[in-house]
Design a protein around this nucleic acid. Structure first.
Length: 339
DNA sequence: CGATATAAAACCGTTACATCA
DNA sequence: ACTGATGTAACGGTTTTATAT
């Protein structure tokens, strides 16, 4: 088993493109080959897909931009008929809408220069934000704060300093959050039209919707990172254990080599060596006397139940193992000196 | 057709605030 | 009433991307 470990945006698993800024983890397990992200594209094209963790309930869309076809404009609230109660209908009306400030919104829409919402072709219902009212028992003070916040919050820029107020944070109502969450499941990014539509639906500023989506994406990424870290940790433990096992095996092989000199007189057929890499591979013959040390030791230990690799290649110390009987070296290796 | 400029959108790290134990 | 931890809305700066020239 080999591991393909890459650091990058998990939303684009194993793509050839790796931004140095990508901090997400992506880890794959591959039964046959290394499939690293840093490799060229061809690598990932020809190997089985590695395991990939993905928390997202949808396929993340690359930066939305304005190219998203309008057919993708599917928001949960599109089912809402204007005459029917909206998803936040529990409000029962009469409550104070924390997030209302029509003037600011109108201004912002004008700034965006889009008339999407007023278009007769717009699929957005006329469901209005009167439904988003306070009903979670906020105090009067809370309401006051929120209104202050709205008064100040006409744009992204900081007119805060101008009126000498520090920024006040409003809490979105449960309904608003749920609504945003639903739409996030549909699209984790918004194009301007969608943003405006959402903002109007929820009676929030487009900037608020935008920020909410940004933060939501960040939360998703953070969660994914946590999962990936946990997974990497487990993989690391597994590899450490494997390494320990192999080290032990190597030690036993060395001991065997010194304590059993006639081990070196094994027929050449029992130990084969790759001519290119000069590594000894264990023989697959089942001759009793020619049982290879590796096979013997691992079998004796009986702890190789999870050792699926039946052709362990061993390399002793820093030099490739050369376990051929000296007498046979010339035949095996050509005209090499026997000294 | 590639290089460059520009604007918009997304990302990132951080701060400030609300809430809760 | 106070406090620290936690969650999250909001911000400013940076990077990425698409488009125009």
């Amino acid at each position: 088993m080999e591991l393909a470990l890459s650091l990058g945006d998990t939303s684009k698993p194993f793509s050839s493109k790796l931004s140095s800024k990508d901090l997400g983890f992506c880890m794959g397990l591959n039964g046959s080959s290394f499939n690293g992200k840093s490799e060229e594209k061809s690598a990932s094209d020809h190997h089985p897909s590695p395991i990939q963790l993905d928390l997202l309930p949808f396929s993340p869309v690359p930066r939305a931009h304005h190219h998203q076809p309008s057919s993708q404009l599917r928001f949960p609230w599109l089912n809402v008929v204007s005459t029917e109660p909206g998803p936040m209908d529990g409000a029962g009306g009469g409550g104070l809408d924390v997030n209302r400030f029509p003037v600011a919104m109108a201004q912002e829409e004008a700034d965006d220069g889009t008339t999407a919402l007023s278009s007769p072709n717009s699929t957005v219902s006329s469901f209005q934000m009167d439904h988003f009212c306070i009903r979670n028992g906020r105090s009067k003070r809370d309401l006051f704060d929120v209104e202050i916040s709205h008064d100040r919050a006409s744009s992204r820029a900081s007119d805060d300093e101008e009126n000498g107020l520090t920024r006040k944070k409003l809490r979105l109502s449960k309904e608003q959050s749920a609504f945003l969450e639903e739409s996030f499941k549909e699209h984790n990014t918004l194009n301007p039209k969608q943003k405006l539509a959402l903002a109007k639906q929820l009676n929030l500023r487009p900037r608020q919707v935008e920020v909410w989506f940004q933060n939501r994406r960040a939360r998703t990424k953070l969660k994914q990172t946590e999962v990936d870290c946990e997974y990497l940790k487990r993989c690391c433990e597994t590899l450490t254990e494997e390494n320990r096992r192999l080290q032990k095996e190597l030690q036993e092989l060395r001991a065997l080599k010194t304590s059993q000199p006639f081990y070196m007189q094994l027929p050449a057929t029992t130990l084969t060596m790759c001519p290119s890499c000069e590594r000894v591979a264990t023989a697959t013959t089942s001759s009793a006397t020619a049982t290879t040390a590796a096979a013997a030791t691992t079998a004796a230990k009986g702890n190789n139940s999870n050792n699926k690799d039946s052709s362990v290649t061993l390399q002793l110390a820093n030099k490739p193992a050369r376990l051929f009987p000296f007498s046979q070296l010339p035949q095996a290796q050509g005209a090499q000196s026997t000294s």
